[in-house]
Write a protein that binds this DNA or RNA. Structure first.
Lengths: 158, 158
DNA sequence: TTATGTATGTAATATCATAACACGTCAAGA
DNA sequence: TCTTGACGTGTTATGATATTACATACATAA
């Protein structure tokens, strides 16, 4: 387990808080946060890092859920659609969204040394992207913005 | 084959031009644009769209090169490192860079209807990303910026 | 020529992801 | 009440993507 996103914080708190908001959001939108889905989200929150689908699957299976890939992929896909999790394509992995419900275009900062992933405020980034796309007449619906580099801790070590 | 990046253009010209610059750049940097590597780049340029590694491999194998995955992955990885091609993670695919040598942080605009990929000028996007990262003390080395949406042509159809 | 680094070929395997179908549950409407 | 349809889950099977490890060849410079 790598260090939490670049700084220490009250993990139990942020985790429980997010989970509560996730419940509220899904019921509000008519979606169902079923046991598998809820557990998948909890697993991501507990790990507090990006996890591969098979890794999540393993944990789910250990708790009595199905142990075939679609079980994990479906739960994760649901979470992503609901804005409760994000997919990090560079890592073929998923991570819990730390502030669901708030409108945000996430940008991910991936440390190449310790693999920690942080979610940065990317509204200005998204705005610049929309503008660049508009120049070509392209309309952006979703965007993946992923940066690879060094987190503060790993910079210090080097 | 989908339409070239959102507008018609002299394809043979842009292709040959890029290839010539690729030669110059690699020799200048001490890297070797060997036959497989050169041919992989040509294949990407001819296709003028994002291609999967296995698709490129098939073409290479048909021309007498090795037919195992590493052949394609190594050539493509080389091209990406040299800035002659880009990897589109959302599509698990690669595409030739249309203006190698020019410093640029590419952003890709992927049409979800026709799968065409365009490379947008993303200097402002990258600047915004660097700034957001700096707020967290993170230093960006490489970035993948990929947008999914609708190209002008497909917007017109809808 | 020999040593060294780099490039390529190949086999084997690891990792990631989806299609297709069966079964169960629940709620809306006949 | 019965039926129907939508949704969620489980499972089998397979497809698609990517890498490790090792062998061989080839260039360059000491």
């Amino acid at each position: 387990m790598t260090a939490p996103a670049f700084q220490l914080h009250d993990h139990a708190h942020c985790s429980g808080d997010v989970l509560a908001r996730a419940e509220a959001l899904t019921t509000a939108s008519g979606a169902r946060l079923t046991p598998v889905r809820r557990r998948a989200l909890e697993i991501l929150l507990e790990a507090h890092r990006a996890m591969g689908a098979y890794e999540v699957l393993q944990r789910l299976a250990a708790e009595g859920y199905g142990n075939q890939p679609p079980v994990a992929y479906r739960a994760l896909e649901f979470l992503v659609e609901q804005g409760l999790a994000h997919r990090i394509r560079r890592l073929n992995a998923f991570t819990a969204c730390m502030h669901p419900g708030e409108a945000h275009a996430p940008a991910f900062l991936i440390c190449r040394a310790c693999d920690t992933v942080a979610e940065a405020a990317a509204a200005p980034v998204r705005a610049a992207l929309d503008a660049a796309a508009a120049d070509l007449g392209f309309v952006v619906e979703r965007a993946n913005i992923e940066a690879l580099g060094l987190c503060p801790a790993c910079q210090a070590q080097a």
